[in-house]
Design a protein around this nucleic acid. Structure first.
Length: 409
DNA sequence: TCTGGGGTCCTAGGACCC
DNA sequence: TCTGGGGTCCTAGGACCC
């Protein structure tokens, strides 16, 4: 069997590059990629972390996900620009559409990364390296930002390769290059080997990917259970996963918000939950999905996270139904601690609602269901036109505000 | 630590059933 | 009840990614 050829395309400093392109387009005189700059959140709202950094900022030691406060200490003249997610999604889609012209076997791995299965296309393109360079240069010329392209015989190797040296580079990590290019790297550089895994590996005297590749299977199994197999295979550059849309059984959507101060007032918290329910159920309906499990996630002022979930009897996308359960979960699970963050997650998503209608119910309940759906659709349309939560069913408002109202009675 | 937001997958432990 | 063992489902929490 001939080897597969996989490309991994990774946008360099995606958020910062895309913002730079946006600003230049708007007539901004400076290319923010050439100065010490970052994309960051609003510190006054306690969203102050670094989302992306310019190469100059990187050189000054600024790291992604550190606080803007820390970053400014390293560079007092640092320029900070807000994230523009709508624009990022536009740029992401544009890139995906472009890459799709090379192969139908493509996977959007994240907002700024794609895998392409190029196996068997060499009769069209002659040389894979040349093709990768052309893709990289075309993106630079046509879209105004740079990417790295990694080439390997599987997704893992392609991904590791695209990470080698940045920006604006093509790298290969073929089977026969694993010992020379992959093995010398720190084991923490391996995809899916995070902080905790690295700590345990280091304790086992495993420091490089080569160490891991030669590690004793029994020792790994004892320390990592099922993850051991992944780790060993990854260190050997083995991966047989396919390029294609994720077929996850348990997908979910979520919404969460770091509050601008610690909340303890339950009515205030419920207001946030209400707003979040409206927003996330709108997303759910837009994706034509139904949820069967709802969860609330909390983070308190000690940075301790916890969560609680409850199932619904039948899949639904109805705001009122979902909010009622959100309130039930909240009542059962909130520990009365000062909350830094709160969020809702809808899990166990289904493409249809498969409502179980009682045999004795005749068709009256079905009729009711349809009416509710029509009503909900109308509301969504109006909200999309005029703003997010302009209209909510009166009954929902009552649930959301009843206690607040009582105060004034 | 002045520490975002949106995801996926895995595991341990409890409930429940036979 | 001086109470076995296995399977399945569910929940909460944790690790990791970008």
């Amino acid at each position: 069997m001939s080897e597969r050829i996989i490309f991994h395309v990774d946008v360099n400093n995606a958020f910062l590059s895309w913002t730079a392109v946006y600003l230049l387009k708007k007539g901004y005189q400076i290319d923010i990629r050439t100065i010490p700059s970052i994309i960051g959140g609003d510190e006054s709202l306690r969203h102050g972390i670094v989302l992306a950094k310019s190469p100059v900022a990187k050189k000054l030691g600024i790291k992604t996900a550190e606080t803007i406060y820390q970053a400014k200490k390293k560079c007092p003249t640092l320029k900070i620009y807000p994230a523009n997610y709508e624009w990022y999604y536009q740029k992401s889609n544009e890139l995906y559409e472009y890459l799709k012209t090379y192969t139908p076997v493509i996977e959007r791995f994240s907002i700024d990364e794609c895998f392409l299965d190029m196996t068997g296309t060499n009769y069209l393109y002659h040389d894979y390296l040349e093709l990768a360079s052309k893709i990289k240069d075309d993106i630079k010329t046509n879209f105004g930002y740079t990417v790295n392209v990694g080439i390997g015989n599987n997704k893992l190797c392609a991904k590791m390769a695209s990470d080698f040296e940045k920006p604006d580079k093509v790298h290969t990590l073929f089977k026969d290059e694993i010992a020379s290019k992959l093995w010398p790297l720190d084991v923490g550089d391996l995809f899916m080997c995070g902080k905790k895994t690295k700590e345990v590996l280091n304790k086992l005297n495993i420091f490089t990917i080569k160490d891991l590749a030669h590690a004793n299977d029994k020792v790994l199994e004892k320390n990592f259970k099922n993850q051991a197999i992944y780790l060993k295979n990854a260190a050997l550059g083995l991966d047989d996963s396919k390029v294609g849309p994720k077929t996850s059984k348990n997908s979910s959507i979520s919404i969460s918000e770091t509050l601008s101060y610690d909340y303890t007032d339950e009515e205030k918290i419920k207001e946030v939950l209400f707003r979040q329910t409206q927003e996330i159920t709108r997303q759910l309906r837009k994706q034509k999905l139904y949820t069967k499990t709802i969860a609330i996630t909390y983070k308190n002022n000690q940075f301790i996270s916890y969560s609680a979930q409850m199932p619904l009897p039948n899949p639904t996308n109805n705001t009122k139904e979902i909010y009622e359960l959100v309130l039930a979960i909240f009542a059962k699970s909130y520990k009365k601690d000062p909350l830094r963050l709160i969020g809702i997650r809808l899990a166990d998503l289904k493409a249809s609602k498969e409502t179980q209608i009682s045999l004795f119910d005749e068709d009256s309940s079905l009729q009711k269901e349809n009416n509710t759906e029509e009503f909900q659709k109308t509301i969504d349309t109006i909200n999309e036109k005029f703003g997010k939560s302009l209209i909510a069913p009166a009954s929902l408002k009552i649930i959301g505000e009843s206690k607040t109202k009582n105060k004034y009675k």
